[in-house]
Structures are given as structure tokens and as C-alpha cells.
Amino acid sequence: MAIIVNLDVMLATRKMSLTELSERVGITMANLSILKKEKAKAIRFSTLEAICQVLECQPGDILEYRDE
């Protein structure tokens, strides 16, 4: 897929686990796993906003476009 999700990188730099992010963002672990494993078809602005708020980053830090 051309859109790469760098959630695991951001979690590692913030030394935060997926479970903690799930609790703080209010999104289920199942949904965060879908996002992390790049299985997601779409991401809501509200989800992106919540993740960015907790991780103190920009959407571009989480999502990246790579030409295949």
C-alpha cells in the first residue's frame, strides 16, 4: 500500500505501548491493531486528532506516502 502508517515508530519514540495509547485515545485495541498493521481502509479525522493529541505529533508523523 502507498500509505505507510508509522504508528509503531511514534510509539517507540514516545516509549508508549499500544495498550496505553488505546486507553488514552479511547479506541479499541482491535482498531488500533488494524491501523498499526496497515490493514485499515480509512481513518477518521477524529481518530487522527485523538492520536496526534496523545502522541503530541502531526498527522504527517503518523502517515507517510511512498511511491510504489
Binding site: I27, L32, I34, L35, K39, A40, K41, A42, R44
Partner: peptide, 8 residues
Amino acid sequence: KKEQDLTV
């Protein structure tokens, strides 16, 4: 539905 299920 599949797309909806894979929207986070």
C-alpha cells in the same frame, strides 16, 4: 461493510 469495518 468491509470498508466500514476497516475504518478506524
